[in-house]
Design a protein around this nucleic acid. Structure first.
Lengths: 121, 121
DNA sequence: GGTTGACCTGGAGCCCACTCCAGGTGAGAT
DNA sequence: ATCTCACCTGGAGTGGGCTCCAGGTCAACC
């Protein structure tokens, strides 16, 4: 778990996002205003890092930033939005399922092509 | 199978690419110079349409255009490039495999999140 | 007290893969 | 004959998602 406060470099290490990307996410509101120390430098909380884990998951499954922003707003709006969050994630889950199915289908085409090329040798 | 010559509108219908995209692909050399009729309008051959099927497969599995161009060049260069084509497709196949694995893993995270949210209701 | 190094800000720039536009042609329908 | 329509060209513009830059601040080490 660790100390629960992260310097920018530690947050980069932990989340895999670049510092520029973290600043960008804060700027557009995908990440809520991050705490600063006396010198104005960011100090990411455990919560920030946890949220960024979710963002990474959604991003890496192809969710557009605009949709992640909607989700972020639901999260901020409080517990009464839980049903909406479920709906949003379920919809996204279907998308992901579709992507996987599509990739698998295309992959079999690639396999056929490879077999065909092998047959030429 | 059909007539083996396609007007632009028919090629759009057949391949699912927009006419602008087809022109773009020709312009950058992903599609070899397409035949024209007397009036200068494109007439896509059966071969063009077949190649576009391959392009769609590669594109939809996330291959960058630069790599598709390399593949296109191998195809044009003749039969002696078949081993290189196999290598390229095998490498891409591994990428696709990785994408699928990654999506599946992220998806289980999403499932957990949904379960967690359900437990709050 | 000078240098390094991690960080800050606002804003410009970049890459990819298209997508759109202006201005024009030629063929067929009314 | 005029209108519509599908098409043409070269080139500019778009959108998403970062990524880079100039110029500056602080803290820490030599």
């Amino acid at each position: 778990m660790r100390v629960s406060v992260y310097t920018p470099a530690e947050a980069v290490e932990e989340t895999g996002f670049s510092i520029d990307t973290l600043r960008y996410y804060e700027k557009i509101g995908l990440l809520e205003r991050v705490d600063r120390n006396a010198a104005g430098q960011r100090r990411f909380s455990q919560e920030d890092v946890g949220w960024l884990g979710m963002v990474r998951c959604l991003r890496d499954t192809g969710m557009p930033i605009a949709t992640m922003l909607r989700f972020a707003e639901l999260v901020r709006a409080g517990d009464h939005t839980v049903p909406d969050r479920i709906r949003l994630l379920e919809e996204h889950d279907r998308q992901v399922q579709g992507q996987i199915a599509n990739l698998a289908e295309r992959q079999s085409y690639i396999h056929h092509k490879i077999s065909y090329y092998r047959s030429l040798l």
